[in-house]
Nucleic acid binder design. Sequence first.
DNA 1: TCCGGGCGATATATATTGTCTATCGAAATA
DNA 2: TATTTCGATAGACAATATATATCGCCCGGA
Lengths: 305, 305
Amino acid sequence: MADIKLKDLRYLVALADTRHFGKAAERCFVSQPTLSAQLKKLEDYLGVTLVERQPKHAMLTPAGEAIVARARRIVESSDEVVEIARSHRDPLAGRLRLALLPTIGPYLLPSVAPRIRKALPRLELMLYEYQTGPMLERLRAGDIDVGILALPIELEGLESRALYEEPFVLTVPTHHPLAQKSQVKTDDLKGVTLLLLEDGHCLRDQALDVCSRIDVHEKQDFRATSLETLRQMVASGAGVTLLPELSTLGPYATARGLVVRPFVKPAPTRQVGAVWRRTHPRQRAIEAVANVIAEYALQQPRGRS
Amino acid sequence: MADIKLKDLRYLVALADTRHFGKAAERCFVSQPTLSAQLKKLEDYLGVTLVERQPKHAMLTPAGEAIVARARRIVESSDEVVEIARSHRDPLAGRLRLALLPTIGPYLLPSVAPRIRKALPRLELMLYEYQTGPMLERLRAGDIDVGILALPIELEGLESRALYEEPFVLTVPTHHPLAQKSQVKTDDLKGVTLLLLEDGHCLRDQALDVCSRIDVHEKQDFRATSLETLRQMVASGAGVTLLPELSTLGPYATARGLVVRPFVKPAPTRQVGAVWRRTHPRQRAIEAVANVIAEYALQQPRGRS
DNA sequence: TCCGGGCGATATATATTGTCTATCGAAATA
DNA sequence: TATTTCGATAGACAATATATATCGCCCGGA
């Protein structure tokens, strides 16, 4: 069950090119006896004479010619392997698959993606949007490299890092009683009708959690499929909802028919973090991406008064 | 200047298939630590992590995937090399390039070629026709494997073997005085007009040699380019010639207008032999071919009385 | 014919390295 | 908490690739 050695094939190719054992050995940076002995072993292993040793110049047998033709391709390919490896050597280069929660991605990416691209220009960022469950599955399956979601989660073989703490804000229709207050308390939610996302969105559970000790009514037969439909429902007066602060900043801050009210401190929040396989070979790239996100969050105005 | 080892690529491919170090090691008939250590060395050499070691099942990094793809083709090709070698292993199989003198080939081959094919069915016989000089050149250059010609010759790095001794016969026009004799002596050639082949044909020199001590006249301004034109010239009465006996047997014995007369013994002859490079790797095939020719010659009626 | 040079093969010592067994350590499982 | 799984590590051993020195064979020139 022995094996051909790649080095021997190199020797053979060199001999085919030079037709001279000494020259071939020189080209391979070995002594002549080495090349001679190794080629002999190769011939013994293959059971065929590859080289006809003539006094002046060596020449290849038909078997030798046939095998050298393959050997050239093999040697080339093996050099390509080294070349491919070299191109993958930079841990901050290459494809990195990043997934975000649907309640985070659309609001974080417009500002953060350009920063990542600028800080890590050789990184080819591939973006995905998954809810927590599927995201963790795909993370473990190796379909994605990093997930951005709400901590804590059940980590098995996964590593996580907190990135920023995101306050919730209350979103109410313009003419709702609570719109009169500049800040709200969780107790203010007593008796109001709450609109929530459908099952699977962790934001739904987080909102329910905030209201756990309070008597609120979830609007029956309604489960929004996205933050945007939820926002539109609030604007149409069907109820109120909790939104992550980031989704109410920027272009979304100007939506008509609804107002946004922060909670009095300590405001309810959720912890946003990054998750990846503990065994991931490019921890440095992941760390770098996480750093960019965390730094961006630091610079944001927090909990507008 | 170290080198990738083919075996390592096998290990990598096995790991890619099994996603499990133990299983992969088993498939490669080595212990798990061996495969583990070798793959680590490969990664170190390439400067890239190829495998992500997860607790349950290993998985390949993008670099690993890219390299495994190449590795599969390399391993396949290296197996093909072994396969090619196997197909060349039988020394009595494969192409053998055989050259014959123009004064031998056309008369020997019709009977001998079928016998060679029968005795050595796996031999792919390629036939050529060259005069002595070019034949030896091509022999030394490796363009042909065996030459059938008249010995002795200057052998440099060449080996030779006598196959059979071929008598010369005298060929004269039907109405020539010498046609009256049933056997001729070389002295009978005194004063006759001799027709010969052009320069380059060794038969020309051999004929001149036979007549060296006799006063013969070579026909001026005439040099035949082949035995057949020579034969036709004799039939037309232009003179007489010496022919190798084999060329006057079989279908050629019945030519019109000329008769063939053997010499009294000891008749002049030429030694026909085989020549090949001393270094030729398939001595056995050459020997086998030579045997068939020599045996055939033994069975032939010699010097018809 | 003898001698010298070119070239590949052989002999022997040595350093490398691939391989084994035994064991460890980490992480998942019960 | 105990057990199992799985890959990594340690250390000994054996295979082997390599180098230096030398041999033997042809060939060419004096």
